[in-house]
Amino acid sequence: MTNETAAGARILVVDDEPQIRKLLRVTLAAHGYAVQEAETGEEGVMQASLSPHDLIVLDLGLPDLTGMQVLERIREWSTVPVIVLTAKDQERDKIAALDAGADDYVTKPFGMGELVARIRVALRHTVKSAEEPVIRSGNLSIDLAQRAVERQGERVKLTPTEYDLLKTLASHAGKVVTQRQLLQKVWGSQHDEGDSHYLRIYIGHLRKKLEEDPSQPRLIVTEPGVGYRFIIQE
């Protein structure tokens, strides 16, 4: 899928509330997306397996299978981007879904503008992932092949740990990466949320080296209680 065809992406909506499915169907179709619907977890898994989709919007509160079960079954054979819909107070569910392979989450009640923006980011990341291994955000460039980071055309010196942390975040640009995912990717599988002080320290180091104003970060933003998100700036 290219940037030109991203607007016509095929989106599967899995939600048991008819009014939400209708809202998503009408709004997403108005933005040029082709929408399929499923009202149960089993139907969602079946639809996902029968025809290719570019993205799935998945409600975690389904009547038969849980959203987590649907996500885990889809992840057995597919890497399609998945945005989960969660209730406002279900922070643990957000973290569990992201750790299980969801790409992003939107909290109910949600604004359609926010959801459409998250969909665009997820689809754009899917498109860019197949391109050259250089990630750009504003005046920052990250050359994954050369392990080189430049800001305003000047080389930025990073420690190996700082680079690995930045690479992990930037490789999932626009996507929330949980504390657990970052700790295990950068520091090893023996680390979990109990070691989150490592993250706070190294995120602080990166912000001092990369952000215009480290106290008001725009590149590496915090998702409170969940993790961090790398933002692509134009």
Rank of each mutant, 00 (worst) to 15 (best):
G204Q: 08
R229K: 15
H205C: 11
S141C: 10
P224S: 10
D195P: 02
V84N: 01
L98T: 05
R25S: 12
R180N: 13
T2N: 14
E39T: 12
A130D: 13
I95F: 03
Y228A: 00
Q184E: 11
G188S: 10
I74A: 03
M1Q: 09
L62E: 00
V35L: 03
R75V: 09
M68Q: 09
E72D: 15
L169G: 06
Q152P: 06
E37S: 08
R10V: 06
R151I: 10
Q152T: 12
A96V: 13
K175W: 05
P214S: 07
V149L: 03
D192R: 08
L199A: 03
S49E: 11
V116S: 10
L123K: 01
D64C: 04
D54Y: 00
T2P: 07
L182V: 07
Q179R: 12
Q190F: 15
T222Y: 07
L24S: 05
I56K: 00
R120L: 05
V80I: 07
P160V: 12
E234T: 15
I201S: 14
V176D: 02
Y198H: 15
V121A: 05
L62I: 03
Y33C: 03
Q233D: 14
L58E: 01
A29T: 14
S78C: 07
V80K: 06
G174P: 02
R118D: 06
H31N: 10
D143P: 05
V226S: 03
K128S: 11
A100W: 03
R10K: 14
K175D: 08
V84R: 00
E193D: 13
G227V: 02
L24H: 04
H191D: 08
E72C: 11
V149C: 04
E131H: 13
K108H: 11
H31P: 06
M68L: 10
T40A: 04
R136T: 14
H191Y: 15
K185H: 14
P109M: 07
V82C: 08
K108L: 09
Q181H: 04
R75D: 04
G227L: 04
S51F: 12
E91K: 12
L85H: 05
V177H: 01
G174I: 01
R218C: 10
R151K: 13
E72P: 04
R10M: 09
E37G: 04
Q181T: 06
L12P: 00
L55R: 00
T222G: 09
L219H: 01
V45G: 02
D89G: 13
I119M: 06
H172K: 12
K209E: 01
V156M: 06
G227K: 02
E17F: 08
G204L: 05
S49I: 07
